[in-house]
Each structure stands twice: as C-alpha cells, then as structure tokens.
Design a protein around this nucleic acid. Sequence first.
DNA 1: CTGAAAGCGCTAACAC
DNA 2: GTGTTAGCGCTTTCAG
Lengths: 342, 342
Amino acid sequence: MQPEQIKKVNIKELARLLSLSTATVSKALKDSYEISEQTKKKVQEAALKYNYTPNPYASSLRKKKSKTIAVVLPEVDDNYFSLAIKGIQAIAEEKGYHLLMYLSHEKLSIEKAIIDACTSGRVDGVLISISKESNTASHLNQLIAEQIPVVFFDRAMDVFEAPRVITNDFESGYYAANLLLEKGCKKPVFLSVSSSLPICNLRAEGFLKALTDAGFKGKANDQLIYCDGTDAENYAQVKKLLKSKKRPDAVVGSVERLAIHAYFACQELGLTIPKDLKVVAFSSLEIAPILNPSLSTITQPAFETGKKAAEILFSNIEKPGKVKASETFILPTAYFERGSTL
Amino acid sequence: MQPEQIKKVNIKELARLLSLSTATVSKALKDSYEISEQTKKKVQEAALKYNYTPNPYASSLRKKKSKTIAVVLPEVDDNYFSLAIKGIQAIAEEKGYHLLMYLSHEKLSIEKAIIDACTSGRVDGVLISISKESNTASHLNQLIAEQIPVVFFDRAMDVFEAPRVITNDFESGYYAANLLLEKGCKKPVFLSVSSSLPICNLRAEGFLKALTDAGFKGKANDQLIYCDGTDAENYAQVKKLLKSKKRPDAVVGSVERLAIHAYFACQELGLTIPKDLKVVAFSSLEIAPILNPSLSTITQPAFETGKKAAEILFSNIEKPGKVKASETFILPTAYFERGSTL
DNA sequence: CTGAAAGCGCTAACAC
DNA sequence: GTGTTAGCGCTTTCAG
C-alpha cells in the first residue's frame, strides 16, 4: 500500500503536518525566493507524499485568474471545428490552461447564455466562432466590460471589434468559380450556409464577382442559394435544386456539409459527378481523395487557424492590448483539384 | 445607451445598492421560500439591471460543487470522438453543467496530469476514454479517493471498476470476419490499433474466433496485426502489408482510420477495392456511402454512447452509488454492407 | 527566512 | 423575513 490518504489534505493541514504556516507552504510550493532551499525541499516532498493538490477555485478566487479559456463553437461534429479545437487545445496545453468547451448549436440565445457563463471570472479569455443567428454583439460587450479578451476564428462578427483569424475567403470564392468556368460550366451555383456570416458572404461575393467578370448576366438569385436550415432541410433543398428543371451544372459548397449533401443527392437522383454536376467544397476533409469521385476542395487551414487564434488570445491575456482589436489575420487556403471537377 | 456598468458588481455591492444584506440577496436570487415575493422581485430586477452574475468560483469554493465535468479523450479530430462529445455535451447542457475538455494524445503521462488537474474540486465527475498506454489505474484511484464519480465510454480499463458504456465488440468482430468469409476471403487480417485496449482486443478476439470456427488453421500472428504507432507509422505499416507477398485479401479496421489508411494505400499501390482487397471498418463515418468504393461499416452509436455515459455520470453525481461501478452498458452496433465487401 | 492576518465572493447556520 | 457571521482554501501584504 502506498501512503495514501483517504481524506485529502489542504494547505492548512499540510502546514500543520510540517509545523509551518500556510504562507510558508504556499510560497515554498511556488518555489519563491523568500524560502530557504531546505524548507522548500521539505514542503515539496510532503506535498508529494500527502498527494496535495491546491484547490483551483480557491486559488482562482484569490488571484482573479482562472487559467481557463472558453471555446465556443456552433458544432463539434464537423471536421473543420474538430481540427480547430485540436489547434486550440495544443496551445492551451502548452500554456497550462484549461479548456471549457461550449456549443451554441447555431442559436444566438444559447450563445448569449454561454457568454454569460463566461463572465464573472470563470474564464480568462474566449475564443469564438459565432452562430448563424449572431447578428448583434451586445452579449460580447459584457466581455469587454469585464476586460476578458476575445478572439474570433473562422466565423467572425463584423460589428464587434476583436482580433480575428480567417482565410482569404473572397479570393477563394473567386477561384472556385473560375475553376468551374474553365471547365465549361454554364450554370454554377454557390451554396451558402448563411446569409449573415461574413465568411460565407465573402466567399459568395468572390464567386459572384468571378461570374460577373466572366460576363455572366444571370440574376444573383439563381447563382447564390442559401441553405440556412437544419441539416435535413438543407439536404432536401439541395436535392430539390438538383431535381428541378433549372438544375445547375456545378455547385460550390461554402462548407463541407453542403457539398456532401450534393453527393448524396446525386447518388439518390442517379446523377453522375462530375458529368452531370461538378462539385467544389470549402472543406478540410482529409479523405476528400477517396470519395466517389474524389472531391475538389478549397482547404482551410483549420488546425492552424485554431492555433493562431489561441496564440493571439494568450498574447492578449498575458499582455492586454498586445494584439489590437482591429487586427485581422488571414491564413491562406489551398486548392486541390480532384475528380469532382474533371 | 443601456444602464451598463464599467465595473462589475458583486453581491456585496448589489446588496449595498438595495440596502439589503448579502444573505438576503443571495437567497432572493435562488428564489428561497424564506424571502418575501416583493424583495425577491426587487432583487431580481436589480440583478438584471446591474448585470450581476455570481462569481462561479466563490460559489464552488463554498458549496464544494463545481457544476463542471471533465471529458478526457485520446483525440478530438476523429469522427467517433466528435460525435461522442456531442452526446456528452447534449446532456451536460441539459443539466446546466460546464464541460472541460482534455486530450491525452494517447499518452499515459498526459492522462495522469489531466486526472491530477481534475482533483481538488475542479470537477464533479469525469468521463474518460483511456489512452492506448493506460495499463495502470493508479491515477484514477485519486478520483475515487476524492469521491469523484468516473464513467468510461468506448475505451474502458479492465483493472479499474467504474461504470462503462461500450458496444458488443466481440460479436461485431465475429460478424466482420464472417462477412468476409462468406465473400470467399481466404486471407483476412484484423488491423488492431492497440494490443492493450480491451475494446480492440474484444473485437480482435471475435474476429479470430470466427476464423477458428470456420476451420482456419493459420497463426494468429498472420491474422492479427497491431498498428500501434503514430498515424504516419500506421499508414506505412498498412502499405507495407499490402505490398508484401503475403498480402491479405481483406482487412478489418478496428477503428476508422486504419481502414482509411487501407484505402489510401490501395490507391497508391494501384490495388482495387473490393477486387484486390475487401475492407470493413469499425466506424461511424456518415459519408461511408460516398467513398470510392462505399465502405462497409460496423457502425458504433457514438452519439448515444456519449449521451449514455453522461447520463450515468450525472446520475452518480446526484446520487453517489446509484449506478454500480461493476455495471457495463452495451449499446449495439449496426452493420452496413457496402461496396468495399462486394 | 517565516508567520499572522486579511480577504477574494459567496453561502449557510444561526440569530433576531 | 431579514441580517450577522463564519468560513470554503488559497495568496499576499506586511511584520517580525
């Protein structure tokens, strides 16, 4: 049997066992210069022996620092966000911070409640990718009021000033359209997952600009479709579009899932990609090359985005104002042409 | 402008503003029966007006409850785990709990550090899917010493008694082998991601049993291969296997990623699935039907597993001992035969 | 180099 | 129905 306690010791108990004051113990554990080497050693050994771990909340309360950050996302079961979390986690771990994960499920009301929970000292900073419904920043103002740094990643908010990490969205949208035009597409359509998210709008704008530049005259209405519902609704919408008489000959999915909907819809409708429909997706899907057919992607650096956003956040936690709220970090996407646009 | 404070108020300040005691305010905010309706109303309105949110850590310290649970996983950028988190989160949100997410990156040393961080009141409970290296339970003993409920999901530990939520692994392995034998495979191989995880071993055992039952005489060595390294190493190993002269005619991936490795390796080696190699995967990949070829899967109920595990955890947080440590919950898998085993 | 004491913000026992 | 008070476990002046 190891010398294990049933009852866990706190600093007071540990101090008593060592016949020292709690102050001395506290300092010794932090390797303070005020304490003699001998005492430090004694204390640290005892801490190990009695399996002492400081109560984090007592410490947080006193120091007004929680060593915790919040990540708030619309969803987790999504390639992009999983990878972004991984990037965030990597930095948080390195810095010794804890990670509270919250999901807004694309609802502003939930996002508000989450931000509320982040106030009053629960976290030292917030990383957020906003919900589709988030058209107001009033909830985020609470955070600045409490001087809690915020950093946007991927889905940022125009009306709120905070550092943001995004990709070259307009340009990527432009590229996607051009790729399709080069292949001879006459009726390409951009499937946008939201009419409010700047990131989607920029991609859509780039896409439309390319069409205009190429001399297309069609109404934007026919070139840009919003799939702004639930997963099931979006699928139904895509399927309906592909079944209709004004079926496009190409689609660009503003997010991975919409392109996947197109794949499934084609399968169900007996359409062949790329013959009947070409597909490009904004996606960081690793297995894009083994889809049927392999999927052409505009790949976002999801992991790096998470990492970068976390780095900025910590930089602002450690030195408030270090990274200005007006700064935007643009990480480049990469283009991979594959079978879906042959 | 809304009546917003720059300085955030605490309960003392709020009490002062209302000319009440902090005790009264505290009780009023909790809708205590001791307080008059009138006072409650006044307090609640003031709380709203001054945007008061209680400091969670002060409250935790006092109540010795954190309303927080920890989820510890080997990785997040994995379909299965993303979905499991989603299930966990759904229940946590419903119960009003906060979620700390930790990644062990398959390292026991990190897992130990994580569990350490979970002690001393940081969390009220722990949901864990252990790392490949976790062959000892000493770190988890800290949790029982502090009466912190633990529940395993997916990857459980044999040597530690805690409720667990898993799938019918042996049976599923058996099924996978039989499926391949029916298709006439002569040299099927099970790709196990770990020689220590019970969940993998059970799947492997089921697989081997089916071979034995079918009269196979081969050495287990040739029928069971451990891909227990990094992603890159595992890929290299799979590729080497498929290039070797004792190339199997079928593989079962104990986890999704190994099957995906096989797909990529085949692509690179010019092998055709299912002609040259049949593939079955333990996987909850939604897009299995649109792979090239579509992937036959043994689908684990990832979301439900997360949900169930969380439910058990909360049940034990609310009523310690409600669910016995010896209980095992088995959620059934579903079989989907697709193109990779035609 | 060590210790006494105050106090972070809250809640719960106990008075009144 | 409301207030007083002690104290959760820790850190941090400030004294000695």
